[in-house]
Design a protein around this nucleic acid. Structure first.
Lengths: 341, 341
DNA sequence: TATTCGAATGTAAACGTTTTCAAAAATATA
DNA sequence: TATATTTTTGAAAACGTTTACATTCGAATA
């Protein structure tokens, strides 16, 4: 494989000149530039990334740590991030893992070995965040859906709170007073915020908020099914259930069917995310749309800004993504969704 | 950040010795080894990956190119690959893109710039595969779900053909003769193999195989809905539909409901993949289980083998993953699936 | 034509490792 | 104890770039 010296020889110039044209330096005569470009193309030369990284101390690579639970929208997120960062020449290293310690280690090693220029952290489970903060003070990083308050870095969060309020208000508008909430995974930031939106809205209306109206799942359909069963088997049933995500809402619908309850007449159900199944399930699920691809792009752009601004003047920034409620039928609306025809 | 020279100074040895310790070279006296180790830990030193890569010509990184369509199981695949490769110290660079040319470019640049030691290619759409082959002769690579026949490399494929035969046979066992097939994305290898299994089985039984029993989708629920509508609106309807994946099968179920057809009585439906929704949809979907995580691990192991064996003696190898039919209700079986309770 | 000055180019050092080869130290052998 | 052998260590080159600095070139000015 050709290296810069081969190119220099072929073009009859020094390697410095070759380097200059590679890096778009203006101080090269048009004439020689063309000669070099020709040599590069003739020899099918690509600069060695390790040598470049060694010199420039950048790798044009960013790290992305993602948690187990997020799998369903992960590909979309990546695509969003990648679409934004690709055009700047960045690549993405991903790391997933089943246990937190492993994640921490991966992160640290990625950082310390100089493998990445920046990081995107999807760590919805707040717990370990402080372990990271120390390692990250001098690294461009954006946190996604994390409750962390960081100086020196950017956080991108969904407007879970407002959207949860909106969708709860909608249920109340339908006349519901006994509205139950199914939590997602323990300590999950998104789930907690959605819960806060729900609770505050209930309180604003002086409606009951109690443990009997809450149940704890872990974002899976199965857990939603189980949680819903608990809620629905009480002597006094809720008339509506707000699940912290769509998968659990779908589990809830399944549970209601098992108990021969009509949706939305006997029990209304709403979710969060707008996964693709939401519109196909019967009845179509009223939920909150999370624009995953777009979130990815925003995260990508935000990281790129930090990368180019340099670590010295990173601005603490919190980007809040607004969310919209998607009215379908499971809440009681009769709006006919003509999705296909 | 400390470098190898700092460590050497602190330990009172030469950088060569430090390097030996780092790389587990045996020819270091236990005594000095401990001193060096102490210095490394005191200074919190991690070898610079670019310098290592420049010298050793390996990066401990592998590239993973994935197509748009595969998004739903992508996170699981990554997790599988990563779980296998992580323990060998490898990282994963991912690249997705919306158009094929972009993919090719990414691939080539990843390879040529020395950023990756090997590649995993998920390129279910056969088309462009030959473009790659040339660039890849000297690179460890494993193809996933690709129809390509390569010397010098490994291919991991699902046993689509056999599983499609099995599930078609099952429909026939239920008494169906007019069985329709909904294709996935054009030129998609998995879809084509599934079709072949279907067609051969039909022919074996001397059942009709014709264009009126085929429709073309693109793996999405919406396309399944549309394709099913076409099939079901014919004067003579099929009595069963085999969709090339679950998403389209779910679209098919939706379509049948729209037309007030009972499943499985008026029309049986089967899919492929076993996505999580398959068991929740009503009726629960009979399908073929694709063990995605396991596939990821197999792919990871296979690439690792190539990586360690060195490129000289790579064995052409084709790994076929056996698949099992999952009987639920949409085929007409009355087996009661007690998934939760 | 000689002089000055800016632009274009080249030389060589630097980035942080690994590794070859030689030297030194430790150990075994006589 | 002297010598041969093996093990451990160090010096220096190499990997392929970028870049500070020095040099050369060409054009513009006098």
């Amino acid at each position: 494989m050709a290296n810069i010296t081969d190119v220099a020889k072929k073009a009859g110039v020094s390697i410095a000149t070759v380097s200059r044209v590679i890096n778009g330096n203006t101080n090269v005569r048009e004439n020689t530039k063309q000669t070099v470009l020709k040599a590069i193309s003739d020899l099918n030369f690509t600069p060695n990334i390790n040598a470049q990284g060694l010199q420039k101390k950048i790798t044009k690579t960013i790290g992305l740590i993602f948690p187990d639970a997020s799998s369903y929208y992960f590909a979309e997120i990546i695509r969003g991030i990648s679409s934004r960062l690709r055009k700047e020449g960045y690549h993405i290293i991903v790391a997933s893992s089943h246990d937190e310690e492993d994640e921490v280690n991966t992160l640290i090693s990625l950082l310390k070995s100089g493998r990445v220029d920046g990081m995107i952290l999807m760590m919805p489970s707040i717990q370990n965040v402080n372990v990271f903060k120390d390692s990250l003070v001098h690294t461009p990083v954006v946190y996604l859906s994390t409750g962390i308050n960081t100086s020196q870095s950017t956080t991108v969060v969904l407007d879970n709170y407002q959207a949860a309020k909106d969708i709860t208000e909608h249920l109340i508008w339908h006349g519901h007073k006994r509205i139950a909430f199914i939590h997602g995974a323990p300590r999950n930031f998104d789930s907690m915020e959605r819960y806060n939106g729900y609770v505050d809205t209930m309180k604003n209306h002086n409606f009951e908020v109690s443990k009997t109206l809450e149940s704890h799942g872990n974002f899976t359909e199965a857990s939603g099914f189980k949680s819903a069963m608990e809620l629905l088997n009480q002597k006094v049933r809720p008339t509506a259930i707000f699940a912290a995500n769509d998968a659990m809402a779908i589990g809830t619908i399944e549970a209601a069917k098992r108990l021969s309850l009509k949706i939305p007449d006997n029990i209304a159900v709403v979710g969060f995310d707008d996964i693709s199944t939401a519109q196909y399930i019967d009845p179509a699920l009223t939920t909150v749309k999370v624009p995953v691809y777009k979130v990815g792009q925003i995260v990508g752009r935000s990281l790129f800004n930090q990368l180019t601004d340099g670590k010295k003047n990173i601005i603490e920034e919190k980007i809040v993504i607004p969310l919209k409620v998607l009215i379908r039928k499971s809440c009681g609306c009769s709006y006919e969704d003509d999705k296909f025809l």
